[in-house]
Design a binder for these strands. Structure first.
Length: 558
RNA sequence: UGGGAGGUCGUCUAAUGGUAAGACUGCAGACUCUGGAUCUGCGUAUCGGGGUUCGAGUCCCUGCCUCCCAGCCA
């Protein structure tokens, strides 16, 4: 995961550098990546993974993968499995250090007893509504719970009975005794445990009380000897509570550090919203290639290296911003350009006949697999009298600046010959162009003598072409920030109805050997990735990201 | 209106009292058997007002704006 080139430093690295210099924690750096298994990981997590695993590696430390599984009503094993796969795929090295908050339930319980004995926690009989009512407001102090001053003995007894299942769900809580007048609402006697009878994906029905995030997280960090507990900005207000717990317990004190989460234009990043897209069938699952999930991006063809480069170049700060989607695409293209094999595929076919080319003749032309990487080698492409070319590469009436094929004009067939367009065949009824007739110049075969022509187009020999189903993906949303919605409507109103178009295409025969997950560049078009459902009998490709298209830009401007 | 955190090109990030820099985007051009890639050039920024200082994006005061917090979610 180490990156070689220089990137600007950031405040978290500075903190670690300072801690190392001062000998804090013996100069040790140990981080953790703590997802809740209630959904799939998304690009935002890629940033967090990069920070936590990257910094640990950089400082010669470790980063644990820890599941924050303190709420069994939302968490599932499916998510655990998917998260592990995604972190590995991105290159996060957690060795055998997969931990769960639930591993520590007993210890956390014992510590709660500790706090009760110290008079710093109490069992509260208020209902959740009453707790809310007595919490006060942003401007007014809360009021003490009438159960706040129970004796240690009574608290111990009640808490034991809570654990033993003597009380119904929601009837009681264990709360920290801090300060109901604190301007920080998190300090107004926060709930530590709630009674909740739900089967836990790991502990089954062993427990009917579960610790809240605030009561569990820092303690888990402490148990694992985490030195720097990195989380997102919304937890800044929780830091005093985080500190209060470890201090009052007198246990190892990790430092919580907050950074700004990633936001991307044209995408939603909240797990709640992503879940809705999946549950409402608005996409075809968590790994739908249009999803900003890591599994969706993987299926779409994004490479781990491209994602890492992106994450590294984001920087780490504390400002709430929104990164342009184009930046992500840039780093994906940059990596794919270096690694993806080139191949010719025609998405919108138009028949082209070389009238002076011998019928039945087939030549094998040599083509370069990746001009950016000589070690990728070469392949051959069959060439014959009848070809498919892209509809966009022919215009009966060329617009200004167009220098592909049009009547009377010459163009080169990639890796083949220079051809000249002579005739246009149209459907007598519709007037639609059905075929174009050209002649080829036998002296101009690729590699031999040449003369300048203004454009080179891709093609596929009709007789040898293999059919491919191609999924053309576009942005899932059609506005920069789908979270901003008109009154009474939700983010789904911004769904792009054209985010998926499927076409049948013709590809050169070499593509038939593609395995699911293989990434290619269909020359002059875009990068594509063989879908997980693709087989040699039925090839399916997903468009990852388009090539930059200068001509399209020129046209758009008119 | 309490508390917390922020505000530098269109976007993201640097500059740690000393020439406001880079990346993405945009625009223009070169090159090209991918209108790809590559290369070159151009453009736009310190939230406002005071102050300290030889010198302020940075320090002080003051105002403004944005985000987060009133789950027995994380």
């Amino acid at each position: 995961m180490a990156e070689t080139d220089s990137t600007p430093t950031h405040f978290i690295r500075e903190i670690m550098l300072a801690d190392k210099a001062s000998g804090k924690h013996g100069g040790r750096v140990h981080t953790r990546f703590p997802p809740e298994p209630n959904g799939y990981l998304h690009v935002g997590h890629a940033k967090s993974i990069h920070i936590n695993f990257g910094l640990a590696e950089e400082f010669g430390g470790k980063c644990n993968l820890r599941f924050d599984d303190t709420n069994p009503s939302k968490e599932e094993q499916e998510y655990v499995d998917a998260i592990i796969e995604d972190v590995k795929w991105l290159g996060g090295d957690f060795g055998n250090r997969i931990f769960y908050a639930s591993d520590y339930f007993q210890q956390i319980y014992d510590w709660a007893v500790d706090l009760i004995k110290k008079g710093k926690a109490y069992v509260c009989d208020l209902t959740s509504e009453q707790v809310r009512e007595t919490r006060g407001t942003l401007t007014d102090a809360g009021t003490n719970s009438p159960y706040r001053d129970r004796s240690v003995e009574e608290n111990l007894d009640l808490f034991t009975r809570m654990k033993n299942g003597e009380f119904p769900d929601g009837s009681r809580t264990l709360r920290a005794k801090i300060d109901m007048a604190s301007p920080n609402l998190n300090m107004r006697d926060p709930v530590m445990y709630r009674i909740l009878r739900a089967e836990h994906h790991r502990t089954g029905n062993d427990w009917c009380i579960y610790p809240m995030y605030d009561w569990a997280h820092g303690q888990c960090d402490s148990i694992e000897g985490i030195t720097h507990s990195i989380c997102t900005l919304e937890f800044e207000d929780h830091r005093p509570l985080y500190d209060w717990f470890v201090e009052n317990l007198g246990i190892f004190h990790p430092q919580q550090i907050e950074f700004d989460r990633l936001n991307l234009t044209y995408t939603v990043m909240s797990k709640r919203k992503l879940l809705k897209l999946v549950q409402d069938g608005l996409v075809q699952g968590w790994d739908d290639p249009r999803m900003p999930t890591l599994s969706g991006m993987r299926r779409r063809g994004y490479s781990p290296q491209g994602l890492r480069n992106f994450a590294r170049n984001l920087g780490v700060g504390k400002t709430n911003g929104i990164t342009e989607f184009e930046k992500l695409e840039y780093y994906i293209r940059e990596d794919l350009n270096k690694t993806a094999l080139r191949v010719m595929t025609v998405l919108k076919p138009l028949k082209l006949v070389l009238t002076n080319y011998p019928e039945g003749q087939v030549e094998q032309l040599e083509a370069i697999n990746n001009p950016e990487d000589p070690s990728a080698g070469k392949r051959t492409v069959p060439f014959s009298r009848e070809l498919w070319i892209e509809q966009d590469d022919f215009r009966e009436v060329p617009p200004k600046g167009y220098h592909r094929l049009y009547p009377g004009n010459e163009a080169r067939l990639r890796y083949g010959y220079i051809i000249k367009c002579n005739d246009v065949i149209k459907d007598p009824v519709t007037g639609e162009v059905t075929e174009i007739h050209c002649t080829y110049d036998a002296a101009t075969r690729s590699g031999g003598e040449s003369r300048k022509v203004k454009s080179t187009i891709h093609w596929v020999s009709a007789a040898q072409a293999v059919p491919v189903q191609v999924n053309l993906y576009d942005k899932l949303f059609n506005v920069e920030n789908p979270n901003v919605t008109p009154e009474g409507q939700d983010f789904t109103v911004h769904l792009n109805p054209n985010s998926l178009t499927t076409v049948q295409a013709w590809a050169e025969p070499d593509l038939a050997k593609a395995k699911p997950g293989d990434r290619y560049q269909f020359e002059r078009l875009a990068y594509f990735c063989a879908d997980k459902t693709s087989t040699p009998e039925k090839l399916v490709f997903n468009r990852t990201v388009e090539l930059r298209d200068t001509w399209a830009k020129v046209q758009k401007k008119g």
